Amino acid sequence: MIPAVVMSVVMALLGAVVGVCVRKLTARLSGADPWPGACEVACAVGGTLAVMATWPSTTALALLMWWCVCCSGVDVLVQRLPNVLTLGGGLAVVTIGACAGHGRAAAVGAAMLTAVMLTAHLLFPRSLGAGDVKLAIGLGGAAGVAGAQAWMIALLLPPLLTAVVGSVVLLYRRIGRVSSGGRSTGSTVVPHGPSMCVATVLAVLSAG
């Protein structure tokens, strides 16, 4: 059996390599360049966490986190989530869950989270985009496999994370206006997708 330390190093290096591909894919889908090294570092950390977590499948957990890095990167750069990521990722998550013997849990988790997000989108379309609804398919499926507690975290934590980030961004904008003599420094737009991804990854890790 490979020692955990060695496996962690291997997965970190593999994650960094995957991060290069994620960066290129993110740039292609968004039409903008991610921050230098951000995707590589995030994917390397994801690979390490996948080994450290007591999860049945290290590979599946790493793939989930690498997918989340790509989705979050695109959403941060252009405030939208393309179907190839959301729908394609959702199908992959449910399929992998079914192959691992958790098809029902993945399908139910995906359906329930998507239903909640769709309702929120219909009620508050300016606060929650259609891309977030489609992102919920994959995230809900992963959380569903992790269990009811993980699913609840994936549901309840994202709004709190987005609110915190929004408050920080708003404070930064206000400081910028003061330093620029009252001139506006840009609009405050906080994508919700990254919060959904972070919350789900934390939920899955805690359940593992």
Score class of each variant (00 low, 15 high):
A199M: 06
A98M: 07
A143W: 08
D132Q: 01
G140L: 11
S184Y: 05
V94H: 11
S184G: 06
G90S: 10
P194W: 07
H121K: 09
A105H: 06
G138A: 02
S187C: 05
V198A: 15
A105W: 11
H102L: 12
V198E: 07
P125R: 01
T162Y: 07
A142Y: 12
A148R: 06
G144H: 03
A120Q: 06
V94K: 09
L113P: 04
V116Q: 07
A150S: 12
A150C: 12
G144K: 04
T188Y: 02
H102M: 03
M112R: 15
G131T: 01
I137L: 15
I96G: 01
G88H: 07
H192Q: 13
A120Y: 10
L155G: 00
V165S: 07
M152A: 07
R104E: 15
S184I: 10
T114N: 07
T95N: 07
V165K: 09
Q149C: 06
A163H: 08
G141Y: 04
A120I: 13
G182E: 01
V94E: 10
L160Y: 12
T200C: 08
C99E: 10
L157R: 02
V116N: 03
L202Y: 05
L135H: 02
G101V: 02
S167Q: 15
A154L: 08
G109K: 05
L122Y: 04
S184C: 08
A107I: 14
G141W: 00
S187N: 03
L91N: 03
G140H: 04
P158N: 01
W151I: 07
I137W: 15
L157S: 00
V165A: 14
L122S: 06
R126F: 15
G129T: 11
G181M: 00
V178M: 02
A98R: 14
S180H: 06
G181W: 00
V190K: 04
V190M: 09
L122T: 10
G89V: 08
H121E: 06
I153H: 08
G101F: 04
P159N: 12
A92M: 14
T119L: 15
R174L: 12
M196H: 11
A146L: 00
Q149R: 12
